[in-house]
Design a protein around this nucleic acid. Sequence first.
RNA 1: GCGGCUGUGGUGAAAUUGGCAUACACGCGAGCUUCAGGUGCUCGUGGGGGCAACCCCGUGGAGGUUCGAGUCCUCUCAGCCGCACCA
Length: 809
Amino acid sequence: MERYDPRAIEPRWQHVWATERTWEVSNEPDERPKAYVLEMLPYPSGEPHIGHLKTYSVGDAVAQFRRRNGYRVLHPMGYDAFGLPAENHAINTGQHPRESTEASIRQFQAQLRRWGVSIDWTREFGTHQPEYYRWTQWIFLRLYEQGLAYRKEAVVKWCPNDATVLANEQVVDGRCERCGAEVEAKQLEQWFFRITAYADRLLDDMATIEWPPHVVRMQENWIGRSEGAEVVFRCEALGIDYPVFTTRPDTLFGATFFVIAPEHPDVLRLSDSQEVRDYVNHAVTESVEERGDEHKEKTGVALGQTVTNPVTGEQIPMFVADYVLMEYGTGAVMAVPAHDQRDHEFAVRFGLPIRRVVEGDEPAPEGEAFVAHTEGERLVDSGQFDGLPAPEGARAITAWLEERGLGRPTVNYRLRDWLLSRQRYWGCPIPIVHCGSCGLVPVPDDQLPVRLPDVEDYKPKGMSPLAAATDWVETSCPDCGAGARRETDTMDTFVDSSWYFLRYCDARNDSAPWDREVLRRWMAVDQYIGGVEHAILHLLYARFFVKALADMELLDVQEPFDRLFTQGMITRDGAKMSKSKGNTVSPQEIVERYGADTARCYILFIGPPEQDADWQDEGVGGVHRFLARLWTAAAEAPDSDGGAAPAGEPGALLRKAHWAIDKVTRDMQGRFAFNTAIAAVMELVNEIYRERAAAPASHVRFAIATAASLIFPFAPHLAAEVYERMTGARVWEEPWPMADPALLVSEEIQLVVQVNGKLVDRLPAPAEASQEQLERIARGSSKLGARLDGKEIVKAVVVPGKLVNFVVR
RNA sequence: GCGGCUGUGGUGAAAUUGGCAUACACGCGAGCUUCAGGUGCUCGUGGGGGCAACCCCGUGGAGGUUCGAGUCCUCUCAGCCGCACCA
């Protein structure tokens, strides 16, 4: 007796798909609608892990379902190949990052093929290949021309362990996202992308895309738009105007002091006392984590200067304090202790006046800061503005200031410009030359790519290891020809991944990053799939790139990813899998033991794919058993009794098959309910086993073929095998099956009889019965009498086709 | 503190629009098959009570709306995630 043997079946079909290039699509348009299905590209390090298996199982199910529903599907693959782990590995072993990265890429290629993922391999690339990063550099230069890439000196986040600067997005709780080291603040000249110029559009255009609400919220929070006013406070003694940002211009009459950040360039001009110097030195060397602690007591030092409150004309004292951040607003704040918790704490500590200027219907608790807008708040002690409701007061005061040139309405963002330069080796070189006379000079397009040179020593020494590649660094200025030096910083790897989905569309173009017409045919990505950990970094950066490139008329979409699906993590024993915990599951091992079809089905069957799911070894066996049962049913199927179509009276088996078609189709359209879709096919297979002895051969064969057809997006190899045995046809060339509506409804229903909403009885009834008929049938229930217990039926609620509920008193 | 998500059997989880709570699977139990031993097939399996037919209880908790609530509303508890001295 033959047995289900994935080790024989899977390679056979993989071979067919590879030699026939089944999943390749051309860029020529045809009559079919397009669907661009994309999973986030993997970072190649070691072997693929279980999270990759989940991503590609989800993505492939979507891609295959779309194909069989008549779409021309673009489903490509590539590798996010630059990055720190490969470089750190090189520091430890001396192995060139290219070698370890490419070794890992080979593992990914082998596994993805072994999993039977339907990829168009003709479009594959790694972001570390000069043929790719040439265009990363090209895009950088376009952004530079637009003023969207610029260099400036700023206080930046520095990871002492990785010896490089980090983007704000890469600092988590004051620590380096990658290595966990405490981040330091450093004053350095660095490269930035002006993502802040797109803050409003990044915010507004989220209305045009279908993303999970929590990801939208995360981006909104990250961009952090707040509306308010800029108000100018003048320091008469020095003759300097200090603008501040406030969201509460209505509280301006309550501003009783003024605070600037320790990093503010004017601090020492305002006061160079030893006390101030000491305070500033301490504040700037303090770790980001320490300083950010909200429970920390407020500290600060008086500067001995005053500024003028523009509405009261009052001189209010100036302080330097570390609760004011240089990065936000103007690095200075007007302090309103009656209406801001932080200012309140500071005022109490330093004995400063607290003046309430907004009052609500309810009196504020004595001595407490009074922060939030509440119902019925009105301005008090605010001169001509007394009695105005707070929001109106804010507008009126802002208008008053604007007339006198002392302020204006303005908007502030939490979002900072994207710091993209890294003092590391394994990244895309920044195509800029530093010339003594011409300054920053872009490398001309026809000299791209600026190739990453080989170096001896990968160890970072506070500057990029590239600086040691003297032959490479020393060059001539493209403008004046004089001796010049290359930029030695490389780009953040998030730059590489901010446009890769565009390159897939036209991956072999060697005269441009893409052809605009070709891009128009494929973009935007219809379904993007990946982990929620990229909710702000990658997904925000990619949106910014697309908008900037669209503004340069290089492409025709405003958003890269129309629909986003974020999958949950696979955990084990309730914890994230990690080598140190020793709770990892290797997809290779599972595939080896049970086959790719089982591995893919199990990972989708375990639960809703958007949720975290806990891996249970026992569960895999159940899914394997199910696939083996389907295979065995096919092996033992009765010979065809002639016609391809099922003949004779439709019985339970045929009805079940059509029910399964309907159920699986609904579970996969719009939603990603793969777990219940697979359960439906399991039910069909169970029905096949119950009915196969009694049902006509054509019904049995149809049911088996249908089960294979429906399981195809999840278990393509087994599906191809079984479908071919049953029909002689190739399942992937078949359209998605359609349920026969006539077989979805039965003539008889189980009528539910309730008393006061509680189940009493189930009775057979004709599906088409009228309300009156149903009520009559229900009243005939033998179990009703006991429940009535002498009480009276006041009312009967009849839901046709479902139930009768008697209301009894 | 702000925002979001999740609470259903021993376990992972189902439940179109408010209409039979627990589909499917794991685990467990019973039977058949004696096949080799990670087997196959069938049946049972929310809790409590009863010899039984049957009865009572049951979706984190407390209220509410409704003929009827896992589902809607209010409050509340627990766990997880994101943001946070952002003016």
